[in-house]
Amino acid sequence: MLIINCPLCGPRDHAEFTYVGDATKNRPKNGDSSNDNAWYDFVYLRDNPKGLHEELWQHSFGCRCFVKVLRNTLTHEIIATGMPKDNLILKEKGLELNV
């Protein structure tokens, strides 16, 4: 069982959450066709990283908020969680520097 620490509800079983997708993708600013490549990348292209990965999950059986999760795809370890606006990788690097 994976435990995801919801920023609002606290530690919960991952079965309460729904995987939403890659949190590293940024929505293109323009919706016009001149930006097709950016939209193609946003909608279809995904990396398959081995190691740290930022993901969006929704606490669908709880507060229904979106939660950003920093997960190690190799070990399934959940390293950090936060609100969608948080940059968890930067936070983690800050922690490492502080050690």
Binding site: C9, R12, D13, A15, E16, F61, G62, C63
Partner: peptide
Amino acid sequence: ADYCAHTK
């Protein structure tokens, strides 16, 4: 007491 959880 007076805690609540919306859960599965």
